[in-house]
Amino acid sequence: MNYASPSVRLAHLHKAYGKTVAVEELSLEILPGEIFGLIGPDGAGKTTVMRIVAALTLPDGGQAEVMGHDVATHPMRVKEHIGYMPQRFSLYPDLTVAENLRFFADLYKVPTAERIVREQRLMQFSRLGPFRKRRAAQLSGGMKQKLALACTLMHTPEVLILDEPTTGVDPLSRQEFWAILRELAASGQALLVSTPYMDEALLCHRVALMHNGRVLTAGQPHDIPAHFKHRLLEIVAGDVPRARKRLLTCGPAGIQVSRFGDRLHVVYGTADQERQIRSCLAEESAEIFTVPPSIEDTFVTLMHEGSSR
């Protein structure tokens, strides 16, 4: 096996459901040991991409390869190399933790001796050991996600596909979960992870921001804000609603004003606009700072450009 070659290679993928285009002209490569994040809202096409990689859905056009096997022509080969965790919890609620693990070990034909060793290891790192005999239905949200992950890891796949594994999971469980994903990547697995949480982009090695089936931009998460082509002001005001109304009336045209709790974010373009904003707020007891854009800010502006294109 040549480890320099990508674990997942997607080229010019295209997929439509009737008239709805789910994925358009998508190309990406994931290397072993890499966490690749698909970041975007519901309906962006993340799930479709993941199902294509998992050989669950055929692309209408383009090519998808997992560990060198084409998903269209060799789906069974692909399935031997992947672990897939769907967005919806899809283990058997009436089976215990141990029985669910056992079931997937058998489906992948993991030898018994191996199975016992792996089960112990997975129990340890997912901290599900004390709950072996508990039915899956009775686990908490975070524990369910960890069990689902453990089940997909039973056959030590080279490629892990995780569809919104942390949606609806509280921040603490999310942090734990991401720690596990980092460990897996460190051991050489390639991970394709989707998430609607922009802040989780920072936990990936590389990300693609997706919207309406298209990749808005891709790259290392810290490079993403470089695509933000505007300027951003943060305004901390005593009376935020009043400051907002004032900006909307006397501020320059074409700016975006969003409230974030006790402050406002204003996206603008030119130094002239900035002067207007400052003079407009002169009577408010407002502090005005220039702040660096976040990934979410970048996403929003790219989204606007994408839809106006």
Binding site: Y84, P86, S90, Y92, L107, C151
Partner: peptide
């Protein structure tokens, strides 16, 4: 309906 089929189909069954 419960989605477990999706999971099972990603295994080489």
């Amino acid at each position: 309906e419960t989605g477990t089929m999706e999971q099972m189909l990603t295994t080489p069954v």
